[in-house]
């Protein structure tokens, strides 16, 4: 097994053994979505109107809670140094970490989101678009989260800090994803929105690991 795949396999195995970590992130996602009908009242039209934004904003917030899994524990127990000395370039190490993070956070959210959308009365035309925006958007969230998590290794209040620095950078993803779902609900074309999301993903795949690798280099120094 190549070192790149070995890092992914290691993180997946750890995630499976410490399953409550993932479950808590997903539970947060579900609970916060459920708060909106309770706060706004159960009017179906209103919920359908806000469903795309609620689902995406909540998914972003839930993801913020999961980033400390990426490097914080490895940094505290000495595992990060071992990973850095594995011979794998730090940028590829960051990419492997991002892939494992997406498989354990982005992918389960992708599965959960349509179910939650039912509870928010999302327009029936918009389900596939919701899934498509999450499929293109959540990998970007994982990639940016890797950059943020690498930057805050060893910082005080790292969990809040990572949200503060990553959320503004994810605003474009939020805008294009939500407007795509809204367009689909209104029966308009969604191609342009998805192309923008795809372009952001395509640019993030090489650039975010480079930045995260540089950040890890500084974290080890």
């Amino acid at each position: 097994m190549s070192p790149f795949l070995a890092v992914i396999a290691r993180d997946l195995r750890l995630a499976r053994r410490q399953g409550t970590d993932i479950a808590m992130t997903l539970a947060f996602f579900v609970v916060v979505v459920a708060l909106f009908p309770l706060g706004l009242g159960p009017t179906p039209e209103l919920l359908a109107r806000i469903a795309p934004a609620v689902l995406w904003v909540t998914a972003l917030l839930a993801a913020m809670l999961s980033f400390d899994r990426l490097f914080q524990q490895d940094s505290e127990d000495g595992g990060l140094e071992q990973l850095a000395l594995s011979g794998l370039p730090l940028s590829l190490l960051a990419l492997a970490k991002a892939v494992a993070h997406w498989l354990t956070t982005g992918l389960p959210m992708l599965v959960l989101a349509p179910l939650l959308a039912v509870s928010l009365n999302l327009a029936s035309d918009a389900y596939w678009t919701l899934v498509a925006t999450l499929a293109l958007g959540t990998p970007v969230v994982s990639l940016f989260g890797t950059v943020g998590a690498a930057l805050v290794v060893g910082a005080r209040r790292a969990g809040v800090l990572v949200a503060l620095i990553v959320l503004p950078l994810l605003i474009p993803v939020l805008i294009f994803a939500v407007s795509a779902i809204e367009a689909a609900s209104a029966g308009l074309t969604i191609r342009v929105h998805l192309l923008f999301l795809g372009a952001i993903l395509a640019a993030s795949i090489p650039l975010a690991p480079l930045a995260a690798g540089a950040a890890l280099r500084q974290a080890l120094d």
């Binding site: 097994m1 070995a6 410490q18 127990d77 000495g78 071992q82």
Partner: peptide, 24 residues
């Protein structure tokens, strides 16, 4: 390092194996 780089959730053997396989 001064820290042992062990994960509590993995067995002693798995700990050694995973880190060694990451390094090939």
């Amino acid at each position: 390092g001064h820290a042992d780089a062990l994960k509590s959730a993995l067995t002693a053997r798995e700990n050694a194996e995973t880190m060694l396989s990451v390094a090939g």
